[in-house]
Amino acid sequence: MDSLISTGLIGLSLGTQYALISIGFTLIFGIMGVVNFAHGGFYILGGYFAFTATTALGMPYVAAVVLATLATAVLGYVIEMIFVEKYVADHLATMLITLGIYQIMTTGIVLSYGAEPAEFRFPVAGSFRGPGFYVPYANLIVFAVCAAAIAGVYYLVFRTRYGIALRAMADDGPVARAQGIPPAKMFPMAFAIATGLAGLTGALVTPILALEPHGGESVLLKAFIVVILGGLGSITGAMVAAFGVGVIEAYSSVYLGGSKGALALFVLVVLILLVRPQGLFGTVARKA
């Protein structure tokens, strides 16, 4: 029973992290039709930006997280304008471009910081202990910030004119353009929001887990699982799938062990996709 509660809390904690990273990933695909292979790179860059800001610049951690979020957002904006925008209609080209950008990012990090993991710790230590469970304070803080960020994204996408325009682009690009929605403004901004979210997640999560140059690969893999399960392009789907994956991963790892737990997760994903190939909340085919 003790581990049942603790495991559930671990699952929720994992779920919020997966949700935040996956929302950005699915946002880019939903609006632009781009599978952003550099998404994990922005996550790691967020971690390194925050690390540099706290260690080299001596900034407080909170300010470093804000800086990392803004820096990755700006970088995402610039990268979209320079490299992605021109080929946005060509899925294969954008895949290769973003993959190349990811390679440049990781190699750049290795050259700048070395290949070994950086010693980056969350500023708050210790755990909250209740009857039969514990939650590290760091996880609670990350949970709260991620939840706030997710709420912010929801507000932006579903409650603002900009969000309506974004969803219009995602639903039917040509019609949205005909209505006067300019893709040249929408796409870079959507890309910046997504990469900023990845940077925010990296700045928050890497001090709890590990900050190392190739850490983005496992994050990208998890984001893939989440968005495919949730339905490519569906923000709600990504949210639900992220929590589902987090909780299943936690329970299967704790009760079946690390190896069998990982296997259980993948088997479950495959089974769900057999029944619903479009994912939990995906539509059968993307129009744009």
Partner: peptide, 20 residues
């Protein structure tokens, strides 16, 4: 013996198993 998937970044579930 307790094994984990190579590439695991979050060891909280493994820690949970050890505690149990």
């Amino acid at each position: 013996e307790e094994y984990f998937q190579r590439g695991t970044t979050n060891f909280a579930p493994i820690a949970q198993r050890i505690m149990a």
